[in-house]
């Protein structure tokens, strides 16, 4: 069992990388979208730090999961909220942990059901090993090499803490 309370520092690092990326890619008025639940917590802080003009969006990808028929329905699905037009907009997609890549696949599908974005950039707090799809992050708070039985989880919203559970 390992604990890490460095989330604030990681978000600062992410904000710095994002400023560089936004400048390098010349993104005009990018919109930020957090994935429920942890991604929204991170996105709220990044959105504030970067002072973005477009209001923050949130995505609940439950209806787009590929394991719906296995794990069933969670009635506590929050409606996705995208308070801007997706068409031709640069999107910064934010999640807490990038693991298999399946959540991001679902999020991309959902975003495209709202319109055709100009580009999508992926920012994650933790990029851990265990990818099952060809998906990679553009902005990374921290990389972690973990076994398939290990879990890393963001708890919050206040304070934000990374919890690591390693199988013996």
């Amino acid at each position: 069992m390992e604990q890490a309370n460095e989330v604030g520092t990681l978000i600062d690092a992410m904000a710095e990388q994002l400023r560089t990326q936004i400048a390098a890619r010349k993104l005009v008025d990018p919109a930020m979208v957090g994935i429920h639940t942890g991604g929204v917590w991170i996105a709220e802080r990044l959105h504030r730090k970067l002072g973005l003009n477009v209001p923050l969006g949130s995505l609940d990808i439950s209806f787009y999961r590929d394991d719906f028929t296995r794990i069933g329905m969670n009635p506590q699905v929050r409606p996705s909220d995208l308070p801007f037009d997706i068409d031709n907009r640069h999107i910064i997609l934010v999640d807490d942990v990038l693991h298999t890549g399946r959540t991001i696949r679902a999020a991309l599908n959902e975003l495209f059901d709202y319109g055709r974005p100009a580009s999508i950039l992926l920012a994650v707090l933790v990029e851990r090993s265990g990818r099952e799809l060809p998906i990679e992050a553009d902005v990374i708070g921290r990389k972690m090499e973990l076994g398939s039985g290990d879990h890393v989880k963001l708890t919050g919203p206040d304070p934000l803490t990374l919890e690591l559970q390693k199988t013996a």
């Binding site: 209806f63 409606p79 959902e110 495209f112 059901d113």
Partner: peptide, 17 residues
Amino acid sequence: DTAESFSGVTEQTVKKV
């Protein structure tokens, strides 16, 4: 509650999940 979250689908360009 589930119906409440589905009501957002009609706001999508593609009204489908």
